[in-house]
Amino acid sequence: MKEFLYLIRGGQEKYEKNSPDEMQKHMEHWQEWMGGLAQAGQLVGGQPLMTEGKTLSEGGAKIIDRPLAEGKELVGGYLLIKADSLDHASEIAKGCPSFEYGCTVEVREISPM
């Protein structure tokens, strides 16, 4: 199996408007989905990301105190998964719970070194 990275962007603005009960249900959906990936031997790892960040450019000479993307484009988290192909990884990504909040998921194969 190959490894793939899911970059999960957006959805925070809708999610943050939820009640505590709605947030809990969403977290349960995430736990179920990731639990299923783990049981299938497809989950390598993943975490949500904090909104603070720094973007470095020009060989590190220029530092911006924010992630490069703005607002709804912010990467909110990532997952590493195993799949047979890009199409297979894309099919698995369709189960991402954050689609409920308008996120996007970029699926990228990790190149072997």
Rank of each mutant, 00 (worst) to 15 (best):
M1F: 11
K2Q: 15
K2P: 00
K2F: 11
F4A: 02
Y6T: 04
Y6F: 15
Y6V: 02
L7F: 15
L7C: 14
L7Q: 11
I8E: 02
R9H: 14
G10H: 03
G11V: 08
G11K: 01
G11C: 09
Q12A: 12
Q12F: 14
Q12W: 13
E13L: 04
K14I: 03
E16S: 12
K17T: 13
S19L: 14
P20R: 13
D21M: 10
E22C: 00
Q24S: 12
H26L: 10
M27C: 08
E28V: 10
H29V: 00
W30E: 03
Q31W: 01
Q31N: 12
W33M: 04
M34L: 15
M34K: 04
G35E: 07
G36P: 01
G36H: 15
L37C: 06
L37R: 03
Q39L: 09
Q42M: 12
L43E: 02
L43S: 08
G46N: 09
Q47D: 14
P48R: 05
P48N: 03
P48I: 01
P48D: 11
T51N: 02
K54S: 04
S57C: 06
A61G: 09
K62P: 00
K62C: 09
K62Y: 10
D65R: 11
L68K: 12
K72F: 00
E73W: 01
V75S: 06
I81R: 01
I81Q: 03
A83H: 06
D84R: 12
S85V: 13
S85F: 11
L86E: 10
L86S: 08
D87F: 07
D87R: 10
H88E: 14
K94M: 15
K94R: 15
G95N: 14
P97Q: 11
S98H: 07
E100V: 01
E100K: 14
E100F: 02
Y101D: 09
T104F: 04
T104C: 06
V105R: 00
E106Y: 03
E106Q: 06
V107D: 08
V107Y: 09
R108C: 10
R108Y: 07
I110F: 12
P112E: 14
P112H: 13
M113T: 06
